[in-house]
Simulated assay, not measured.
Amino acid sequence: MLDVRKRSAASPAPPAVTKPRSRWSTWFDIKAVPYLLVSPYFILFAVFGLFPLGFTLWVSLHDWELAGDRDWVGFANYTELLQDGEFWNSVANTFGMFVLATIPQLVLALMLANALNKRMRFRLLYRLGVLVPMVTSIVAVAVVFGQLFARDYGFVNWLLRTDGLDWTADKWSSWSAISVMVDWRWTGYNALIYLAAMQAIPRDLYEAASIDGASSRRQFWQITIPMLKPAIVFTTITSTIGGLSLFTEPVMFAQGDVGGGSLGQFQTVAMYMYENAFRHFEYGYASAVSWMLFMMILLVCFFSFLFTRRIGGTK
């Protein structure tokens, strides 16, 4: 009798019977919860992104005044815009500064990232140093560069031995000065992105290439550049968006003037849009300018993506 009690006491307890989950609970956890978790972003994007975009399109189809009549004009604003010489001047200025700033910026960022990826003394200090321009106030940057490119006492004129060159008076000189400002501010940001991508490349690839006798230059072009393709695509797209919507740097370079110089030498499309909206109060026309800028950015980003995705010999 004792043995029977011992065996019964030592025997494991029967497993607890779990209640099966309802079909509604399973559907909610699998189907509904993921959409609920990501819904805040899409709600905010719809309120602060899609709605302003659609409303701007609606305004561009009207002769819109802030406190006056709002007459429907259809595509008349766009027709007038395509015949506006000042608009095409701003387009030429925007693309000119975009080319002068973006291409050297990405090339310098790639070279800087490759240098920071090597073993050197105070490497961490150098890596932190490239962040300084990005966290510096753009107003402070504009003041400093305004002093550097000053006509009578600027350091750049002294360095180039030029006699009182006014960098804001000529189209090419103003483009160059603003491009230098943009490159100084954003080259370090792109360099850190390239550096992070370089550190993710397996070292085995470089060791195998070294065994095969590949030089450092060939390793850079045959291994580093193809492996950096996603980072290059990302930086190209973001630099394109930032370059074509350039506003703060040229405005501060002109000391707050959105006209871009006496003859509009460096007035960008964003500055022209601001001038029509908040100086002439032509909100319908300014909305048309913004949509034309939006379409130009989409078009250039598309061709930039087609070009950069072929890096490394892939399609």
Rank of each mutant, 00 (worst) to 15 (best):
Q267L: 05
M120K: 00
S90H: 06
I225L: 07
F234P: 02
F42T: 09
A231P: 01
E282W: 14
F302W: 12
Q222W: 06
A286E: 05
I193A: 04
P202T: 04
I297R: 03
A140F: 02
L37E: 14
M1D: 15
V143G: 13
I223Q: 01
L44S: 06
G284I: 03
W291L: 08
W24A: 12
M271I: 03
A191M: 02
A46W: 09
L148Y: 13
T248E: 08
T248A: 10
F307V: 11
R203N: 10
F45V: 12
R119S: 12
V135A: 05
Q219L: 07
D212S: 14
D69I: 10
L116N: 00
T79Q: 10
R5N: 15
T79V: 07
L50H: 02
S137P: 01
W186R: 01
V91E: 02
V130S: 00
S174T: 05
R185G: 00
I225T: 05
K6A: 15
P40A: 13
L81P: 00
W24G: 10
G260W: 00
L50C: 08
P104R: 04
G164S: 15
N93H: 05
V141K: 02
L36F: 14
S11V: 15
V59C: 02
M271D: 00
F278W: 09
W158Y: 15
W172E: 11
L66A: 12
R309P: 01
T248L: 06
K19V: 13
L37H: 13
L108F: 03
R123H: 01
L110Y: 01
I237L: 07
F45Q: 11
R127A: 10
R119L: 12
Q267N: 11
G312R: 14
I211V: 14
S245M: 08
L299C: 11
L195Q: 00
V139H: 03
V233F: 05
R127I: 09
M296I: 06
M1I: 15
L116D: 00
A277P: 09
L159K: 09
G154Y: 08
N89V: 06
V99M: 13
D212L: 15
S216C: 08
G188M: 02
L100T: 05
G259A: 07
W24R: 07
I178L: 04
V233S: 04
Y189A: 04
A196T: 06
Q265I: 14
L228T: 00
T56R: 01
L124W: 13
W175H: 07
G213L: 07
R161C: 13
H62E: 15
Q83G: 03
T268M: 13
A277F: 04
D166Y: 08
K118M: 00
W27V: 09
A169I: 12
A67M: 10
I138R: 08
Y35Q: 13
A208N: 07
S290W: 02
L50P: 03
Q255S: 15
Q222S: 14
